[in-house]
Nucleic acid binder design. Structure first.
Lengths: 320, 320
DNA sequence: CTGAAAGCGCTAACAG
DNA sequence: CTGTTAGCGCTTTCAG
């Protein structure tokens, strides 16, 4: 009987497992990565996390889940507490602001692999998995315009954020390129959350000349807009058309099946995980890469065609 | 100048943080808990996890997130790999089967605090946070009956699962109590997932005498049923009424705003976390407790009143 | 009351 | 090739 076997047998019998804590201390490895998202309750981030998990499931890395609630203070605290407990970080940063980024940069420089998801920090060089926000916004603008809309409003996401900024800029530029004015009262500030978008929609529809279409910069805000419209008993798309960036969970089953720009969130998470694992394996030198995923326009029923006459329908305008 | 101050200053300046890994090794603590759910992509579990997080956020415990995909093999593997890396486990077990429970019992007996969420393992004594499935099912049955329905079908969840079993049993008992027959062809097996419920709904509506109402035992299956009906171009609630257990994400905005039995999933997660923390603090002796959360009936528009005449509407039946 | 030392469980380096 | 040992960063204990 070889000693190797008897040892193996003993291991079996006693149910021995090396202590990962002791390993961690000795090797400086944690076999854990932090996944830091604004809110796991947002289906988009749930899918991202699922994508990360699908990759990590095979490997030795566990996922530590953290929510920032879009608070950059919380994000800083979370990062500070977690950085020493994980081997790498997958993060959707709350803001593009440089002050916030300094901390992250320090961690990265100190050797912690980092991958950004959906939002970048301009000027800082991290691996990241983005989505083609500009193309998505242009797709949305073109769709509305092709349907004959000219009184178009938008509820934008946080402008200190990559998708918030890019989606709004590309959308308004495109409109201006085709000669459509996007007046200030048609640009409402949102923060990617439902409640502000709800309020914004109420205000939009209370204008003397309400828009005939609204572009909402993310899924939660689209939900807020839809709820506001429903409370107002305003019909979609008969009275207003709605187009969103990102699908809603049961977007196809809504009273007005949602027309929107979509992308593969699970894939986005999976790619982020792969990039992180590559950094973790990384004997190679660091060479931050940016992946930009494509988007597509999902035409359902929440946007309708506007006849030229609607545009100057005095009766309609008086009725508001 | 006191030395305490200069030390504090030095700590500040150097950005020193005690290594939780070293602490862990010394103290035999991981400062991590495992949260094991079927699928984080299911909004119900996302909310449960959020509830857990809301409690743990203050404390020193991090959340390690794991998905079982309703596979009890995966669950076993996950548990085996994770038990030595965490201080406690919050779990929604895949099955009530005893064979699966043995492993869990061993871990518990070996000292790992465990809290079960939404599903118990009969005969095993763990802390758990359940929901009043029987009352929920009875609420659903009574609602349909009060609306005049008599041809009532159900898509049940996995019967090796607490909610699957309890919801079905209470529902069918209640129907039988009020003299309504629930024939085998009206009882379809689901597994809490969308696709099987989709198929089941197709079959249900293809029957010679299709039901006028369907009770679906969880949110994902309700989505599946709704999608099948939408594909079949069958109107809800005009042709069939739908009542679900658990709300859908935008349940109020659906073409047929969903009537359902609901509960507070975030609270369920938060309570589970509190129970786990109590065990972790626990100088006290173990004394497994079961918390049963109440449910409520959310009446929206996916169930309609059936006139007695509808029940024997020959024309309708021939038209199928 | 302050300061040194042992040891948590592991692995890598090194001696035999 | 096998066996011993040092030390990862911390806390607790014990000595000074």
């Amino acid at each position: 009987m070889r000693s190797g076997d008897s040892i193996r047998t003993a291991i079996e019998e006693l149910g021995y497992h090396p202590s990962s804590v002791a390993q961690g201390l000795r090797l400086g490895v944690h076999y854990a990565i932090a996944v830091v998202v604004p809110d796991i309750t947002n289906p988009f981030f749930a899918e991202v996390v699922r994508g990360v998990e699908s990759i990590c499931r095979k490997g030795p890395y566990q996922i530590i889940l953290l929510n920032t609630d879009e608070s950059s203070r919380d994000e800083n605290e979370i990062l500070r507490d977690i950085v020493q407990r994980v081997d790498g970080i997958i993060l959707t940063p709350t803001t593009e602001r440089q002050s916030s980024a300094e901390q992250l940069q320090r961690y990265y420089d100190a050797g912690t692999p980092i991958v950004l998801v959906d939002r970048v920090i301009p000027g800082k060089d991290f691996d990241c998995v983005l989505v083609d926000n500009k193309r998505g916004a242009i797709l949305a603008a073109d769709h509305l315009v092709s349907l004959g809309h000219r009184r178009i409003a938008t509820i934008r996401g946080s402008m200190t954020t990559t998708p918030g900024r890019e989606r709004f800029e590309a959308f308004s530029e495109r409109l201006s390129d085709v000669g459509i004015d996007l007046p200030p009262e048609y640009c409402r500030d949102g923060d990617f959350r439902e409640s502000k978008a709800y309020q914004a929609t109420l205000e939009l529809m209370a204008l003397a000349t309400p828009p005939t279409a609204i572009f909402s910069a993310n899924n939660l805000m689209t939900a807020g807009a839809l709820k506001a419209l429903s409370a107002l008993r305003i019909r979609v798309p008969e009275t207003v058309s709605i187009i969103g960036f990102d699908d809603l969970h049961l977007g196809e089953l809504l009273a007005a099946p949602l027309t929107c720009v979509t992308r593969d969130a699970v894939r986005q998470g999976a790619l982020a995980a792969r990039m992180l694992l590559a950094q973790l394996d990384g004997n190679v030198e660091r060479n931050p890469r940016t992946i930009v995923l494509d988007v597509s326009l999902l035409k359902r029923a929440s946007c309708r065609k506007v006849r030229p006459s609607d545009e100057h329908d005095e009766a309609f305008e008086r009725s508001m």
